[in-house]
Design a protein around this nucleic acid. Structure first.
Lengths: 221, 221
DNA sequence: AAAATAGTGTCTTTCAGACAATATTTA
DNA sequence: TAAATATTGTCTGAAAGACACTATTTT
């Protein structure tokens, strides 16, 4: 019988750059014990309604993350990816706000994306696929909003997008793009960071966002 | 232990419209016996290198399809999708050329997409996801080329794209788009279908195509 | 010649990006 | 006031779609 598990690429923005949440494998975890890997775990049919539920359980147990943006990525399978035998991992990726992101503990920590050179199993491949997917979806959705705090200026939000995309974005282009998406609400406030103050925006209520997302999916997916 | 299986959405173009390949469940298949479903089967760790191998085996055994374009779609999982218990299906989709498409048999047949109202399990959901994915990828790749014969005119290829997208495409726009993708080779031949003959094109050799695809994936995926 | 189909020229609209100009803060 | 940052105006170029016009077949 093949092993069925879920691994999660947990991403957040810390100190202005993308970080991945990694867990230390405890002694009872046979292969790669004490190594840092993506949070993951076996599917437990008696406990988990479906694979997404497994992902949420894993995030809660291993990273204390409770309600992230969570989406299925792809399934990585084969005889060789895990020394324990033929396995399939239904990989997911999750985005959390840095204000909500958990502190580092003995068994959990955030690592800057660019510091990661290798990971056990095929986790590096999974990580790269997740970042690729995030960047791809960023072009036609408002995914990076899940990495943004409650309130932000246009410049701050643009900085988030730039981190996600790994490159600079012309301010004019970004402003036109994001406003036309109709996902922001102008709070009327202003906030300065050393020069002319910028308008403070807020995310549109999530109900409305989900609705927009659904429309997008229907068209783009 | 959860069941791990693979289901495949097998698509081709017949009589100018998209058709799905369905298999009749034999008597030994417990639930829904004698019903028509997507070709699928259990993962066999001793036989299959990975889930894609399972998909190829299933296609060969149940639909006599040998070398289709094949890609992973998503994994559908949960306690309720299969009456036999908690299961996960690593769904794939495949495209075959109608010249290569198998004949109908007692246990296999092609059904026009628009005739499908219901399917056992969650196969209708899987089918819809596959068609959505195909349409989405058609916008920025040359996927429908896998549904085209060796040689074709611009108009014929456009008709294929229109079937896939489910709507008409301006001829001028299509021609510019496909030529700029650089996936076609002009054979120098002409072929008439009742009026001015059109140039006959051929797909670029697959090595070159794979290269282009890789570039696309790196960017878009 | 007429009908049918293919291919080209070109205009308009749209949108991204460049960049200059203006506006409003803090130091 | 100078420096920093935010916002707006507007030009240019690329690409999509509309559409008319030309080209080359079959009947």
């Amino acid at each position: 019988m093949p092993l069925l598990m879920v691994d999660v690429v947990l991403l957040t923005l810390l100190q202005g750059s993308l970080h991945v949440g990694l867990c230390r494998r405890t002694n009872s975890d046979e292969p790669f014990h004490d190594k840092w890997t993506l949070p993951g775990g076996m599917v437990r049919p008696a406990v988990d309604k479906d694979a997404e539920a497994t992902a949420r359980r894993v995030l809660k147990d291993k990273a204390s993350v409770t309600s992230p943006y969570l989406e299925q990525l792809a399934t990585f399978s084969g005889a060789k990816r895990d020394p324990r035998g033929w396995s399939a991992s239904i990989a997911h990726y999750a985005l959390v706000l840095n204000q909500v992101a958990p502190e580092a503990t003995d068994n959990f920590r955030w690592v800057p994306l660019e510091d990661i050179r290798a990971l056990p199993f095929d986790h590096l491949k999974i990580l790269r696929t997740a970042v690729g997917r995030l960047r791809s979806k960023t072009r036609y959705s408002s995914l990076p909003l899940h990495l943004a705090p409650d309130e932000f200026t246009m410049t701050e939000l643009r900085a988030i997008y730039e981190q996600v995309m790994g490159g600079s974005i012309p301010a004019r282009t970004f402003e036109r793009y994001i406003l036309q998406l109709d996902v922001l609400v102008d709070t009327g406030q202003l906030r300065s960071s050393g020069g002319k103050p910028g308008k403070v925006f807020r995310k549109r209520p999530s109900a409305k966002l989900a609705e927009l997302d659904a429309g997008l999916t229907a068209r783009a997916n």
